[in-house]
Amino acid sequence: MSADLATPHADRRDMFDPLARPELFEGVRTRRMFAFCIDVIAVAILTLMAGILIFFLGIFTLGLAWFFYAFLGQAVALIYTAFTLGGPNAATPGMRAMGLEMRLWYGAKPYPLLAAMHVLLFWFSFALLTPLVLAVSLFSDRKRLLHDIVLGTLVMNAEGLRA
């Protein structure tokens, strides 16, 4: 654990200040969109593989397993995000490919339940407020989206965190 993360919360309030450390937030918005595209492709491939597995399970269970098709994509996306974003790397594979990492407002890495809430809040807010969810990042000093602000998370450059 670095010295920055070992200090009390009150001393860390400026740890992710975009004026003091602009390298943490440079190009985050663009790379985050590309990371999302990579993750959508990964979830689609995993959903296809799970769909094939459920097809064969349905044959053996006389069609009972085929009821899982109703929520297969959502379940795969939720599990994918909970265990990758909430894992030790604090990033989905798409985020890692783009050099991004998520942290809580005080520097801790997200945990699986928070990661699951993050993706659920993203999809609910995106369904209700489509343009506004993305427009919030244009006015946010840390380039955060609406669900990031609500949950107190930050997406930053991974290299800037290690410097």
Results as ranks from 00 to 15, higher is better:
R144D: 03
L72E: 13
V155T: 12
V133I: 11
M117T: 15
F55T: 10
R21T: 12
A3F: 10
R144C: 06
R142S: 09
T81K: 00
R142V: 03
V119H: 10
T92I: 06
A70H: 07
M33L: 14
A116N: 04
N89H: 14
L57M: 13
A35I: 05
P93S: 08
M102Y: 03
I45A: 15
F68T: 09
H118P: 05
M156T: 09
G86I: 04
A3Y: 08
T7Y: 04
A75T: 13
L129P: 00
L151Y: 03
A77R: 00
Y80L: 02
P8V: 11
R162H: 11
I79D: 01
L62M: 13
A44E: 11
V28P: 02
A44H: 04
C37V: 15
Y80A: 02
L100W: 01
A115I: 07
G160W: 07
L24G: 01
A135S: 12
R29D: 15
S125P: 00
L113G: 05
I41M: 14
G94P: 00
F139R: 11
V28M: 06
F60M: 12
A116S: 05
M156N: 01
A82Q: 05
P8E: 10
I79L: 15
W66D: 02
G87A: 04
I45E: 04
H147R: 03
P93F: 06
P22L: 02
T61D: 15
D17P: 03
A82G: 14
F83I: 09
R103G: 01
L114Y: 05
T92A: 01
S140T: 08
L46Y: 03
R29A: 15
M102N: 07
H9F: 09
I45S: 06
G51Q: 06
L46V: 01
D4P: 04
A108L: 12
G58E: 02
L64R: 11
Y69W: 11
L151Q: 02
I79A: 13
T81V: 11
M117I: 15
F124W: 14
V40T: 09
V150G: 03
P8R: 08
I54A: 10
Y69G: 05
M15S: 14
T130Y: 06
T130N: 10
I79T: 11
G27W: 03
G87C: 04
G58T: 00
L78I: 15
A82I: 07
A50I: 03
D148T: 01
Y69T: 01
L121Q: 06
L57Y: 06
I41L: 15
G152S: 08
Y69H: 07
V43D: 01
F71G: 14
L5W: 10
P131Q: 07
A127R: 07
G58Y: 02
V150W: 14
A6W: 04
M117W: 12
L113I: 11
G27I: 05
A115M: 09
T47E: 10
G87L: 02
L104A: 08
M95E: 11
M117A: 15
D141H: 15
F36P: 00
L85Q: 13
H9M: 14
L146Y: 00
I79K: 02
A158K: 14
I45F: 08
A65P: 00
F36Y: 14
S2G: 08
L5Y: 12
A116C: 05
M33C: 08
R29T: 12
D17N: 14
K143E: 10
A115T: 07
G160R: 04
L138H: 08
A10N: 09
L72I: 12
M15W: 10
L19C: 07
F60S: 09
G99I: 13
A90K: 00
G107A: 11
K143G: 03
